[in-house]
Design a protein around this nucleic acid. Structure first.
Lengths: 251, 251
DNA sequence: CAGCTGTGACTGGTCTGACCAGTGGACTAG
DNA sequence: CTAGTCCACTGGTCAGACCAGTCACAGCTG
């Protein structure tokens, strides 16, 4: 033989995988859209010509991936869900536990992403978007007197506006996911919330400085301030030995 | 009643979910480690006191999440897998399709992450690590004469060293995942590989400039060069209207 | 007529038991 | 000690059954 073709290792394809594949392809092609319904399990049994066990295994995988949701008794069948970052977060949490991701790595990640989003935003922002930012600042200010939860919500809204301005939803999705992981790690390790009002005031001050820098159009400064703020906020939870890598992110 | 406690919406917990939960908890606690084996399905039926269907649905979910792998006939039972970014990538690909993530967003993400890693690396690098970097450069140079695949491999090794120096494996994991998504998107849309040798030479030149900047300890410059290089490399695939957001990342 | 209620046809969740092709370790023959 | 055979066991799939829950609708009540 002239040349042995490079063969690929082959593993058996299970029936339920073909079903998952077909559903995901239909979703990618647009034949299936969020909000639509899948036929009932027994109907799928007929369409795919397999047993109900097989259909159910496929549905369990799709459900675990956040593609569909089944509810018993629902005559409309399983529902196609809109994308949510839940599954992404789940994988990241797993990565954090199994691969021994440190808190410092997660915070460093957020410092990078948040700083970058603000840098882009200060370049691309329109005057209207700038006032939108200042509006969220006032919303944060009033939320301080209400509740810590309300303040968190206003904070989220702020970052949401930043993400919209920077025209990169991936950044914001990652930010949100990692933020959730960080919070869960911290609340697992440390019972905190000491003097939350002072924290909120400080955070508001920081955000105000960032918006000022964005107004000036100085993206580098805005990003530096944002990273510094996040460092100040979280560094207390990070072992001293790992702080150096975070400080290196600030200049 | 004095104050109505805030009730949580409740959804039924299915039996297979409890099984998944128990396995993942055992993994998080360290009672189960990659390489170990789960009991066989029929043994699990006895231990969890449920039917085989239920056990199998749990195993399908775990398998879909990259936690275990079942092989028919294996008397040792399902294998606990080490973490791999495959599941993470799967979710990201889904995000890209369903949430209409643009190529520009993905590339912007990589510009940010890669630049940040290089910035940290130029601050933290030891002399030994610096020579390690130059070593990978020479490896890339020799790989050019071999194969494009070999060059890609050397390129990956370079970024691996960067990640190690910057002490943040999350950055590198995300980089790798997004890189895979970008490549799949590009190869789907464009049949390319024109004059690959010139591309490799140019890429090598860029990497050399980055290492020079790292040697000088100028993190800002190193990061800018890296981002500029990535922009040059990918901008051709991005619609002009979306390039502005990428350019804003470069300064 | 509007509004409530009871009912029944369906849903998904779980179980039982069965068959098959394939695997790998133990056992045997050399 | 090695090479080959064999068989207990594995996971993949199927068929059929039961249950609790949901929802649409017919029919009743005011």
């Amino acid at each position: 033989m002239a040349e042995s073709p490079r063969f690929q290792p082959v593993q058996p394809v299970r029936a339920y995988e073909r079903i998952v594949e077909q559903v995901e392809d239909a979703l990618a092609r647009g034949d299936l859209a969020p909000g639509q319904r899948l036929p009932s399990e027994r109907e799928l049994v007929a369409q795919f010509a397999v047993s109900r066990s097989t259909v159910r295994e496929a549905l369990r995988v799709l459900e675990s991936n956040g593609v569909v949701r089944s509810r018993p008794g629902d005559p409309n069948g399983p529902e196609i869900l809109p994308f949510s970052s839940t599954a992404l977060r789940k994988q990241l949490v797993r990565l954090a536990r199994v691969d021994e991701l440190t808190l410092a790595e997660l915070i460093g990640f957020r410092m990078i992403m948040d700083g970058a989003a603000i840098q882009v935003a200060s370049r691309l922002r329109t005057p209207a978007q700038l006032t939108e930012l200042t509006d969220t600042l006032t919303a944060m200010r009033t939320a301080i007197d209400v509740d810590f939860a309300a303040f968190s919500e206003a904070d989220l809204a702020f970052h949401d506006v930043i993400a919209r301005i920077s025209r990169n939803s991936l950044i914001e999705t990652c930010n949100e996911v990692v933020r959730g992981v960080v919070l869960s790690l911290i609340s697992n390790k440390i019972a905190h919330a000491p003097n939350s009002r002072a924290l909120m005031l400080e955070s508001l001050q920081h955000h105000t400085e960032v918006v000022d820098a964005i107004r000036d159009g100085d993206g580098t400064a805005a990003a530096r301030i944002a990273r510094q703020n996040m460092y100040d906020y979280y560094a207390g939870y990070v072992p001293e030995a790992e702080r150096e890598a975070l400080q290196a992110l600030i200049d």
